[in-house]
Design a binder for these strands. Sequence first.
DNA 1: TTTTGATACCTTGTACCGCAAGGTACTAAA
DNA 2: TTTAGTACCTTGCGGTACAAGGTATCAAAA
Lengths: 110, 110
Amino acid sequence: MSENNIENIKSQMRRGVLEYCILSMLDKNDAYASELIGKLKDARIIVVEGTLYPLLTRQKNQGLLTYRWEESSQGPPRKYYTLTDKGRDLLKEMDKAWGEIVETIDILRK
Amino acid sequence: MSENNIENIKSQMRRGVLEYCILSMLDKNDAYASELIGKLKDARIIVVEGTLYPLLTRQKNQGLLTYRWEESSQGPPRKYYTLTDKGRDLLKEMDKAWGEIVETIDILRK
DNA sequence: TTTTGATACCTTGTACCGCAAGGTACTAAA
DNA sequence: TTTAGTACCTTGCGGTACAAGGTATCAAAA
């Protein structure tokens, strides 16, 4: 119950930064969806497929990302996503917005 | 258009921390809704009434808050909210969760 | 005394988004 | 030829922020 509650809270907090995380990761390296999910899990940010796929599609439709298909040596082909210039610009704005929020919370908690 | 987009992003980011902000503020002082809205606005976290009132009611129903009515020298009576022990406990968990997320983003951005 | 402005409470309808669950398809190994 | 692993994607549901509109109290101005 309390477990459930805090999980819910964490999920809420993640909500706001998920887009930011995706763009951040793609800023460093192109990646495909399953890969991103794995990395986020490692970073203790749990995301399920039903969340990520629509998100990537949304970002692509907004012109923040593009993708290309690449064959895999094992398994089906992968859809590698790449940040566009527009995506990079937005990422910079997100950096600023994130910094502001962190700062604000810091002040509120003192 | 781009303006709109970044505002949306900020709104999303706020989304995850709003509950946390409310409990944090009430941890320091009892307060009533309009007062909280004002303080959040000062902290550059914009929240409208239609967001805050249901949120406070939700937190109250979860046993995180209680309230009492107090007369005002000018204007209608005010509903002062107070953190419960349960609310304080949850706040501690939120502190931890928030710290983790900030740390994670920090790593992802490097 | 009635109207206006400020303060404070609250609700309804809409849109968005994360999640659970389920589905398809390709490849390799058993 | 069936099973396991990988990778893609969609549908339905529930929760939540926001826009907009509504009610009530009090004090001061008209």
